[in-house]
Amino acid sequence: MSKDDITKIEVGDGAAIPSPDDKGLVSAWWVALIGTVGMLIALPVLKPDPYLTILKFVPDGIVVTFEVTILAIVFAIIIGLLTGLGRLSSNRFINMIASLYVEVVRGIPLLVQLFYIYFALGRIVRVPDIVAAVIAMAFCYGAYMGEVFRAGISSIDHGQTEASLSLGFDKKQTMAYVVLPQAWRTILPPVGNEFIALLKDTSLVSILAVADILRRGREYAAESFNYFETYTIIALIYLLITLLLSKLISAMEYRLSHYERR
């Protein structure tokens, strides 16, 4: 059996990316999108109190959610790149440290890491809740990004490295100018999927008093006791954001695949 005959199974915490080749998933994506938008329009129109009130209450939480997500993913990519390079390093000590970081972080639930880093930082220096949340999310997702970078870099034919070295480039230049630019096309789609997974996991930072979407929803529900209505709107908002981002990643993957075929 050749490598091409082996089906690669990918399971993650991100969204199901609607590939054009998967007609069922594409159809499901459209049904979910239309249903979500329809409910977000119909509920406030049919019952302004409390649905319209909730929609007016949570927008600032959406902004905070994206702030945490974008900052955390940027730092996670930096940590992931260093970790991925460390995992591929011929230096046994650096390789061991990077591998240990990946194993430890991936073996501890994110919620436990959030609490640990938040309170550990608090014993050293007092930082804003949102800063602690970003550090914790970046530290956790950096381990997953490390494996993404490791796999992406490993996928580049070793002949590319040999050719670069033969032309006079040193190892750092080869990695920066030859390997990473090619690996990035492979890395970009899973990074996008991790972005969606991280966005959903930011709901956990509400426990640290960060005023994200879920936190704002909890505040409203505690005041009004409209728990069912509040969490219905919160769920629909998360679903809408996830659906739009998954479509964006699908389009990105499609363009990358067509670019590689040229």
Results as ranks from 00 to 15, higher is better:
238 Y>S: 06
179 V>L: 05
22 D>T: 03
21 D>F: 15
96 M>K: 10
142 G>F: 00
168 G>R: 13
190 P>W: 00
84 G>D: 02
188 L>D: 04
221 A>D: 05
37 V>G: 05
95 N>F: 08
71 L>K: 02
17 I>K: 05
225 F>H: 10
146 G>Q: 00
3 K>C: 03
205 V>I: 15
180 L>H: 09
218 R>E: 11
79 I>K: 00
135 I>C: 03
168 G>H: 13
49 D>R: 08
250 S>A: 15
262 R>D: 11
163 A>G: 09
17 I>E: 06
199 L>E: 13
208 L>F: 05
72 A>W: 01
46 L>I: 07
128 P>G: 09
54 I>V: 00
179 V>C: 01
8 K>H: 09
248 L>Y: 07
152 G>L: 03
249 I>D: 12
60 D>H: 05
35 G>S: 09
173 Q>K: 15
27 S>M: 14
252 M>F: 14
42 A>G: 11
239 L>Q: 10
54 I>C: 02
110 L>I: 04
253 E>G: 07
122 G>N: 08
211 A>G: 08
217 G>N: 07
142 G>M: 01
116 Y>E: 09
253 E>L: 09
245 L>A: 14
18 P>H: 04
241 I>D: 00
133 A>I: 08
97 I>H: 02
102 V>K: 01
194 E>N: 04
118 Y>L: 04
170 D>W: 13
161 T>P: 07
153 I>R: 00
158 H>M: 08
126 R>A: 14
153 I>P: 02
174 T>C: 07
231 Y>W: 02
191 V>Q: 02
129 D>G: 14
254 Y>W: 14
199 L>Y: 13
57 F>M: 07
45 V>G: 01
22 D>N: 14
93 F>S: 12
6 I>A: 01
186 T>V: 15
6 I>Y: 03
159 G>R: 13
158 H>D: 10
189 P>H: 13
72 A>N: 03
226 N>C: 11
98 A>V: 04
56 K>C: 07
149 F>L: 03
5 D>H: 12
34 I>W: 11
149 F>I: 02
75 F>W: 06
146 G>Y: 00
228 F>S: 10
56 K>G: 09
99 S>R: 01
57 F>Y: 15
104 V>H: 02
90 S>I: 07
2 S>W: 08
151 A>M: 06
130 I>M: 05
198 L>S: 04
125 V>P: 02
66 F>I: 07
169 F>N: 06
177 Y>E: 11
32 A>L: 11
61 G>W: 04
16 A>R: 11
220 Y>R: 03
193 N>M: 06
57 F>I: 06
65 T>S: 12
77 I>A: 04
131 V>W: 05
41 I>R: 14
248 L>K: 03
60 D>I: 05
33 L>A: 15
46 L>C: 05
24 G>T: 14
200 K>C: 03
181 P>H: 14
132 A>M: 06
146 G>M: 03
216 R>D: 09
78 I>V: 15
7 T>Q: 10
8 K>A: 10
213 I>K: 04
260 E>H: 12
69 T>G: 13
162 E>G: 08
114 L>S: 02
88 L>S: 12
44 P>M: 03
124 I>V: 15
159 G>T: 12
174 T>R: 05
88 L>R: 14
8 K>P: 00
